[in-house]
Write a protein that binds this DNA or RNA. Sequence first.
DNA 1: ATATACAGGTTAAACGATTAACCAATTTTA
DNA 2: TAAAATTGGTTAATCGTTTAACCTGTATAT
Lengths: 336, 336
Amino acid sequence: MSKTAKNTTLKDIAQEAGISAAAVSKVLNNHGGASKATQARVHEIAKRLNYSPNIVAKSLKVNKTKTLGLVVSDSSHSFFGAVIKGAQEEAAQLGYNIILANTNRDKENEKEAINTLIGKRIDGLLLASSRLTQRSDIRYLDSLNIPYVFLIRRSEDKKAPFVGNDNIAGSKAIVDHLIKTGSSRIHFLNMDKASTSSADRLKGYTAALKDNGIKYDPSLVYNTKPDIQEGYTVIRNILESGQRMEALFCGCDILGIGAMEAILEYGLKIPKDVRVCGYDDIEFAAYLRRPLTTMRQPKQSIGVKGIENLVARVEGIDDKQNVVVLKSELVVREST
Amino acid sequence: MSKTAKNTTLKDIAQEAGISAAAVSKVLNNHGGASKATQARVHEIAKRLNYSPNIVAKSLKVNKTKTLGLVVSDSSHSFFGAVIKGAQEEAAQLGYNIILANTNRDKENEKEAINTLIGKRIDGLLLASSRLTQRSDIRYLDSLNIPYVFLIRRSEDKKAPFVGNDNIAGSKAIVDHLIKTGSSRIHFLNMDKASTSSADRLKGYTAALKDNGIKYDPSLVYNTKPDIQEGYTVIRNILESGQRMEALFCGCDILGIGAMEAILEYGLKIPKDVRVCGYDDIEFAAYLRRPLTTMRQPKQSIGVKGIENLVARVEGIDDKQNVVVLKSELVVREST
DNA sequence: ATATACAGGTTAAACGATTAACCAATTTTA
DNA sequence: TAAAATTGGTTAATCGTTTAACCTGTATAT
């Protein structure tokens, strides 16, 4: 593996073809001003010498890297997997590459990751489930001087570019489903209180109750971080405290999985004793102990639309929307 | 979002500090040759002007980008999610970034992806479940003149750098488990025939049979691509053909999920009538309809070790192993 | 026939860093 | 005290492109 082997450059081709490097550059970029014969010769030589343009040099010159940053809280999470794939493929389609960063749900990590991305001079930034959702964070993001788009979780500043689903409508729809199918006392295991997504899902929950004339009982609402074990623990504790539970809406499928484990282990039947639903429709939701009723978020589309929107910004196209809200879909399965 | 705002450069700092850009560079890189006072001044100005070194320029000069390529067949796949995360975090730790590429299991896509990565002048390449595993592909990869490491699926050329688990030992262990716990007629739903991983898993399967004095019956072995629906279809067809099935080893958990769906839908009980196991231990294997017995591959470690090994190559360290085989672990669950 | 346009290039500067080579002034060493 | 070494820098080249500005010879227009 000879690391010292030099790559072919424009100059090499120029020399071989007996013309200037500038001429070669123009040929290779179709910038005109070259005879058919020269064009053919240049292309032949380029192919023969296995030329691969040095994008680093080009980037330096044109001040664009054709690279976008994608920061996610946890790329191993099934949900993000789909988002990442959608984003990556759409980016490739549009001629961009993606550098991936993980934040592990930590704001400082996130800022650090963004800073190194900035050093690499990315053209734009996609923030999935970001922690930088406060108004003050927007000032920080704006100071980076590159376009950015929030994914999944929106900023407190509602004008900030965003692609995701309508959490209020989605959670209202799923709670409506629980009510219409017979429950009026509905526990809600939501995610971290801090996130705008959680806040919206709570709004949907209360809206559904109100619409159906049910009084909102805050003591039925719990918060924890999206983690199977956490979901298990919280629900187990509730059950062991002797509280009656007939229906449970989990803020995400991951919590739903943990919750179902706890419920089944406690000896209750799903859906006979307790009806459970989640949110997201992660890949395996249909194959769980009890296939899970959930709201299907258009995960891959979020990635795709996110990139589309970001690239439009990067390239200065201005017929783009600021806020793109995609539809989520109720998927009813065995668990309810 | 002013796109024209210029970033601070070394020159700006130099001007402000009244010294040359070279001096500033040295200060910022701790290359010595500057008074304490100058150092302090430079650092202060850099911070004040919000200086972020242009890594693109640096990369061009030093001919290293501190960027690695990671090509996977499908980043949305739960298994790769963990690998990607391990790789990304380890890379960050070592000062590298990762550009992600998807191939969708297509060799031409893979080559194309690699070519654009080469254009971006990545320092090294990680190939997860690559299609470029033939000897002729090694020549292609070598011609790229950058270090590469195979992940998960090894090359036919056994000397090629590789990080993954021992598929022969792993599949032998799990088939042993099926035999020791009472089955002698074991169906095997393996993945695509072409892959070295499948071939190794078949070797493990036959080795286990042989060790236990069971005759190998090729008519019990099926191949299909790793996809839930595929697994479902193949197994459903087998059952509908009237074949008796008492134990089933699936080449990956994904196939196991589809298989279990088919078996349960056909009215058979798991594990009473048919005992099923998979391979990989993807995140949700424990929460499926029937929690799945499987071999737990150290997915995140594969990513981590892969990067470690690749970076050692990139940086010319030579106490690295060529082939790193990590242990997989038998996880027995309800399905067997 | 003269001016004009165009085809097919060339030259040189620039992007923002790094780094080898050099230098003047001061300090240390013998 | 003279030579050597150190301190704290500077200059200029370089990485591989792109691109504005320029040039020259031929073809076309008037």
